[in-house]
Design a protein around this nucleic acid. Sequence first.
DNA 1: AACTGCTTTCGACATTATCGAATAATGGCC
DNA 2: GGCCATTATTCGATAATGTCGAAAGCAGTT
Lengths: 257, 257
Amino acid sequence: MIQSIDRAAKILSSLQGARHLGITDLAAILELPPSTVHGLVKSLQEHGLVAKEPGTTRYMLGPALLKLSNVYLDTLDVRARAMRWTAELARRTGCATRLGVALFDEVIVIHHNRRPDGSEQMPEIGVTIPAHATALGKVLLAYDPNVADPLIAGELRSLTGATTTDPADLAVQLAQVVERGAAHDEDEAVLGESSIAAPIADRSGQVVAAISVVMPTSEYPPGDTVLNDLREAARNISRELGAPSWPPAVAPRRADD
Amino acid sequence: MIQSIDRAAKILSSLQGARHLGITDLAAILELPPSTVHGLVKSLQEHGLVAKEPGTTRYMLGPALLKLSNVYLDTLDVRARAMRWTAELARRTGCATRLGVALFDEVIVIHHNRRPDGSEQMPEIGVTIPAHATALGKVLLAYDPNVADPLIAGELRSLTGATTTDPADLAVQLAQVVERGAAHDEDEAVLGESSIAAPIADRSGQVVAAISVVMPTSEYPPGDTVLNDLREAARNISRELGAPSWPPAVAPRRADD
DNA sequence: AACTGCTTTCGACATTATCGAATAATGGCC
DNA sequence: GGCCATTATTCGATAATGTCGAAAGCAGTT
């Protein structure tokens, strides 16, 4: 790990949490001398990754990140391939659908279809949720023990009263996910919102994303037709990506990565 | 400029252009030994800024960028304040509206309102356009000579047959923008698409963003009411941000930044 | 108007990233 | 399906590089 890149990433991460920070604030967070931080920040600024907020002496995240993330989304063929199917799934089920990928122990939403009746409008692309608190995340965890193992060994943060916070409980749930090829959550991330999710694999057979159907908890649990539509969509997308089988296999444990 | 951060940013930028690249490709682009590039890439990967595309040995941009950019958008108070007004402007004019900020010699779209009649649907947030080829960009250039000067001294890329490519011509246009408090472009970025734009200033009086009305070239030039609605929106947003006057003043030339 | 806190600059030092060579892994080809 | 060429990755010595303390420049405040 290159030290200055590690520090630069920590700076971005800090600005992500606090929005606006001065050099001194950052120096305190990273436990480094201000002059060191200044050099790092200025370098990031020259590439547009951070920006000085006009009028003040504080810094914030920069516009180059937006450009990069836009390209990132275009780069994902899962997303391009899945869009047809998530739209179809939203139509058939009458629910909002999401597509998510893993970002360490979180899920990040890379595509979103509104509920066809148009009830909620919030754009959710880019939103991140702790993986253990959502159906999307449980799918991704279930198929990647390299991420799940450390989580199960530690503490699980609670988002609502219903969040799974017992590591042993989570482990059981993850095993069930692999068995059934689907995960579920009821009010675990947002009160009043529940969802079910299924894995999407690519040519190499690895799980690269998850697809979910989101519904008001009042409509939970959904009927078998919804579950079947979901699994069908996941299977179709996986097939288009060249996956050899579905449901996919759990990824092997690696020493480190 | 810290060398390793500079190199890391160049790697991100390369992946932005080429989508998928192996270590050797990157090494060739940066003109560095593969082992050096490998260390940089691996460090970026550990922070999710770069990801190994599953199944291959190549790398692509990582999901952390999406999370960061999402926060970036939330961080911009211009955006939050302007959203009401761009929606209102779209309604009044019957045209699509955009909000853009500067990213070096480009404009990046940070907010977008569809045409009320719902004709086009493409999400444009995060799209970047060379500044000299669009009304939004001309506004930003006109009020920031530090960016405009080097552009006027160099070559201007042509996007359509109508793009302003003569630096002297651009200089004249920019002077007019400051005079009139508005910029325009006719087919310069996309054929069949024209727009007019106005500057948005903040508390410090600096121009921090530009707002534009986009219309089919068949409807260009727009009537005075559209221009007035645009200027009114720009003035209102600037006032909400605490700008002391409108139209704003041109930023001073700095030695370097 | 003077102060206090912050940001920013500068240069010597030693930590740190770099790079070449060797090894391991991959993918393509017959 | 097995071989070979290409590519990714590891490792350790070298010196180039980033780091950090002290001091100067700026703002905002009392």
